[in-house]
């Protein structure tokens, strides 16, 4: 599983070296970290003005040892569960929304706390190139 992920990231990185993913990112923000917590979640809206779907397959955020694609889903018994997902498709002429309580980038083992007012850079790897996005740190 993990090897598959690393391989995919590598293939995408090589393949997407020159290519810039045909996506427009906006409203990108990450949650400021409370004291004693070394993880956070990132949110944004991705728009795809192109005629073909774009698949977001991985992400890497500055300062995080690992960044994962996660979804918080409600189980039938009422618990909320965070699930690791393989990727998200941004439909042609459509958008993908990452928002609290749903899809998010999960930033693990942050080297430094994220403080309100700062910003970090994340790189999204897609099947059609990569996309570098600035994420504002908010509460």
């Amino acid at each position: 599983m993990k090897r598959w992920f690393v391989m995919l990231a590598f293939v995408l990185a090589v393949q997407g070296e020159a290519a810039e993913a045909p996506l427009v990112a906006h409203d990108a923000w990450v949650r400021a970290t409370p004291p004693g917590v070394d993880r956070s979640a990132g949110y944004l809206v991705l728009e795809n003005p192109s005629d073909a779907p774009v698949r977001v397959a991985a992400a890497h955020c500055e300062g995080a040892a690992r960044t994962m694609l996660h979804e918080t889903v409600r189980l039938p018994d009422g618990r909320e569960q965070m699930r690791h997902v393989q990727g998200w498709d941004v439909p042609p002429h459509g958008k993908l929304v990452l928002a609290p309580g749903g899809r998010h980038l999960m930033l693990m083992q942050l080297a430094r706390p994220l403080r309100e007012g700062d910003a970090i850079t994340c790189t999204l790897l897609t099947d059609r190139g990569k996309l570098t996005v600035r994420f504002a740190v908010r509460r």
């Binding site: 917590v37 956070s40 996660h70 965070m82 509460r139």
Partner: peptide, 13 residues
């Protein structure tokens, strides 16, 4: 729980 990065901060906010 404190190490919860998505749901709990959203709830606390």
């Amino acid at each position: 729980y404190a190490h919860c990065p998505d749901a709990c901060p959203a709830a606390l906010q």
